[in-house]
């Protein structure tokens, strides 16, 4: 018996693997592709450490011609703002992600249960929101006039908690991975739905929870749009909005030559941050999440593996 087992395992391993050459090719391919993903970012980092003058004359280079910290020195002047903005971004991301995973899971579970007669209706109820939008202004009015949330952190959290897309993904996952029989037997044992959900469904669903958590983290971290709409005072400016504001000011004025001309004609001075400062700000804004992501991914992959070895 033990003999057969070990045989089949070793047999499957040797047979079920790629040849050395194919394997090597795959490795080489991914090394090249990974390089293509990193190189453009290196260009930005390099420019941020360059001397403005040499960037203007010689263009963007992968190695800074005259290594120079001027751009970062310029940013240091705003250090209070940057630190504060990180605080805002982190708070919103953490609270938002936690709420989001809870709310989405609690909505997805009932509509994944086939014996729930309204499952179809509530699936459609969430699906429809992906297709039809009433537009920005009515939505804005609900937040500003009905809920009066302008300039609050809640206005940066609430709109993104519920995501139709992830509800549907989670519903599918529950349907596919959580055996109906297990749930039924738990029910016969007298467990309530909430108890079943917390004790049985959630532990079986770590991969999808981890996935949703990761993507919601990203969504919250990268969001600038809600700030653009709801934040008009100088507090509560997140890192992304800080970045966005700078970029978009440049964008707006350079893509609207008319506005630009009128502003200069009327006497306004248009002074953009220099190229190197722009790039340094990108590094400051993107950097932390790039470094935090591998850490996240550890749990993320772990979550996935937990799910896959369930049998």
């Amino acid at each position: 018996m033990a003999n057969i087992m070990s045989k089949s395992v070793s047999g499957s391993q040797s047979k079920n693997q790629l040849s050395g050459r194919a394997s090597a090719l795959i490795n080489i391919f991914f090394v090249i592709y990974s390089a293509l993903c990193i190189l453009p970012l290196l260009l930005i980092v390099s420019v941020s450490f360059s001397d403005e003058q040499s960037v203007m004359t010689h263009g963007y280079r992968f190695l800074p011609e005259n290594f120079n910290l001027a751009a970062y020195r310029f940013l240091i002047k705003d250090i209070d703002q940057i630190v504060h903005s990180y605080g805002i971004s982190i708070t919103v991301t953490v609270i938002g992600t936690i709420l989001s995973v809870i709310v989405i899971a609690m909505y997805a579970y009932p509509i994944s249960r086939s014996h729930f007669p309204q499952a179809k209706f509530f699936t459609f109820f969430v699906f429809l929101t992906m297709l039809i939008s009433g537009g920005l202004v009515p939505w804005y009015l609900v937040y500003v006039q009905m809920l009066d949330l302008r300039n609050t952190l809640w206005s940066l959290i609430m709109p993104l908690i519920m995501s139709a897309f992830w509800v549907l993904i989670m519903r599918t996952f529950f349907k596919e991975t959580v055996p109906e029989a297990v749930l039924e037997s738990a029910k016969i044992d007298g467990a309530g739905e909430l108890r079943i959900f917390i004790r049985i469904v959630l532990p079986l669903s770590l991969p999808v929870l981890a996935t949703v958590a990761l993507f919601q983290t990203l969504t919250y971290w990268n969001d600038w749009f809600l700030s653009l709409v709801f934040i008009s005072d100088n507090h509560n400016i997140s890192v992304q909005y800080f970045l966005y504001k700078m970029m978009v000011n440049i964008q707006y004025l350079s893509s609207n030559p008319n506005a630009m001309a009128e502003i200069t004609r009327a006497g306004g001075m248009v002074n953009f941050p220099s190229e190197t400062v722009r790039m340094a700000m990108v590094v400051v804004g993107v950097g932390p999440i790039v470094f935090a992501y591998p850490f996240f991914q550890k749990y993320f992959i772990k979550g996935l593996t937990v799910g896959s070895v369930k049998g």
Partner: peptide
Amino acid sequence: MMLPGIVLLLINNYIPMSGI
């Protein structure tokens, strides 16, 4: 369980839909 989700969908999507 679905209540928070339903409320959020109403706020974020269904009430504003009348803007069409």
